[in-house]
């Protein structure tokens, strides 16, 4: 006996995860934690893609999820290299102290 889960529950879960990612992105001040919040948002979007893919009975959403994963991997590699460079030059991980582009 299986009970079906409404599709909207998946979308609501996706929205909650995305909102938490935005909150982390805005309120945290450690560069690495901010970066992890971005990954959280990407994961939330992936869940939406897969849920819609199920609803439409098409595999295309899975392909988009796959591409998002590839982009996330590339972004993580470059972003962490940037974090390493920032830390090497400034010895800090606080985003408030890295403000050369401000004004």
């Amino acid at each position: 006996m299986t009970t079906a889960v409404p599709l909207s529950w998946y979308l609501i879960l996706s929205a909650i995860l995305f909102g938490l990612g935005v909150a982390g992105f805005v309120f945290r001040r450690n560069i690495i934690t901010v970066f992890m919040s971005i990954e959280l948002m990407l994961n939330a979007v992936n869940l939406s893609f897969v849920a819609f893919s199920y609803q439409l009975r098409q595999t295309d959403g899975h392909i988009y999820t796959f591409f998002v994963m590839v982009v996330a991997a590339a972004e993580a590699a470059v972003g962490l290299a940037i974090i390493l460079t920032v830390f090497k030059n400034r010895a800090t991980l606080e985003i408030d102290e890295v403000s050369d582009l401000k004004n």
Binding site: T2, T3, A4, V5, P6, L7, S8, Y10, L11, I12, A15, I16, V50, A51, S53, Y54, Q55, R57, Q58, T59, D60, H62, I63, F66
Partner: peptide
């Protein structure tokens, strides 16, 4: 959540095994 609940049409819902288009074969072919 309220907006999403209202705007998504109430379908049959998600049950395991109803959609089998996500195997490596299907994804790879596409």
């Amino acid at each position: 959540s309220y907006i999403v609940q209202r705007s998504v049409p109430a379908g049959p819902g998600v049950s395991f095994g109803q959609f089998t288009g996500g195997t490596p074969r299907d994804v790879g072919r596409l």
